[in-house]
Amino acid sequence: MEIATYKNDVWGREVLLGVSWELLWLVIVVPFVFIALHAIFQASRRKKEKPSSGGERVRRHDGVDRLFHWVMAASVFVLLITGVFPIIGINFSWLTIHWVAGIVLTLAVVFHIVRSLFWQDLKSMWIAPSDLRELSDTTRKPGKYSLAQKGMHATVAILTLMVIISGLILFAMIDTPWWDRSNALTEATLGMMFFLHGVATLALIALICLHIYFGLRPEKLFYTRSMISGWISRDELAANHDPKRWAPDKSV
């Protein structure tokens, strides 16, 4: 299977056209196979007792961060629907919605970067070498974010930046209310931007599938709740986190 598609440029030279969208089924099927296997595996294991969601609550996510998450989630969904549906044959007027959602995502991400740099504990999401011990030592509990969560975040961050940067460059290549398209890019570079945009999109689709799956798993559902309501219970904290590494002081 090809990863990229090619076309002839205006002078007949072969250049990248973009990602091969035949990969779309791969990035959907592979995560679902993984999910199925994972679900079977988890179901076959003895279930740990679920920590109680009652009792004292501690804050895991501030309101503004939750808002950011869901704004980002919504924009990403809109972007995926407007970007991918026409490719699979569901046609509608998608371009304007796509770039508007892209601007929303970009603004949200810029906000998040600024906030995480100056107002948040950047280290809590930083993957430190010591975190790697979580891989071998299953009894070791993480701080605020597990290695898996950090890994997911880092990957999503890179892919999102890739999709945003390539998207903004492509945005310059269409007519908008503020500017007319330019000819600044060669067709080869334009093809590369489409390729990066597409590759990042495909990878994001796979990751989002996994993200949703884990967000909905019974033992992780409290994280999703915390992304909605902001809190987790002391029990959930104790069961899943090392208080030495993450000690939320604020109770709600």
């Binding site: 076309k7 002839n8 440029d9 056209l17 007319d180 000819n183």
Partner: peptide, 18 residues
């Protein structure tokens, strides 16, 4: 016969600055 949007490509040659 150019690979423009209409031909499945990723560019419009007609709506360009020149």
């Amino acid at each position: 016969g150019l690979a423009c949007y209409r031909a499945g490509g990723n560019i419009c040659y007609a709506d360009s600055p020149q």
